[in-house]
Amino acid sequence: MMLVLTISLVLFTCAIFVALYRIIVGPSMPDRVVALDMIGVNLISLVAVFSIVLHTHAYLEVILIVGILAFISTVGIARFIERGEIVEHEHDD
């Protein structure tokens, strides 16, 4: 059991480094956004496996916080790429 958890932790860390490579050399901006979202998902999984290893409930709020922040940052960057401004002031329709 411990071996499986350790292997999964190592693999999640490798996935984060792969996404980090895509953020640094990614040819276009949407590649970087998707890679950032991938890092968020992998961090959530990493924290979940880590709390199984440590037998604790103390890190479960971290999962929610990282999920909320990843969602908001993805929405914000997507709005910036699509429209050029993040917060609009009046309706455009």
């Binding site: 103390a58 709020e61 916080i65 909320i68 922040l69 969602f71 908001i72 929405v75 914000g76 709005r79 993040i86 917060v87 609009e88 002031h89 009046e90 309706h91 455009d92």
Partner: peptide, 28 residues
């Protein structure tokens, strides 16, 4: 008794308002 408190709760609530401002516009 556990991690949390006024500062963190306020930050998370502000992030909810920021998400609303991102999705809709300031007037709405």
């Amino acid at each position: 008794h556990t991690p949390g408190g006024g500062f963190i709760g306020g930050l998370v609530m502000a992030s909810a308002f920021v998400l609303l401002f991102l999705t809709y516009d300031v007037e709405t």
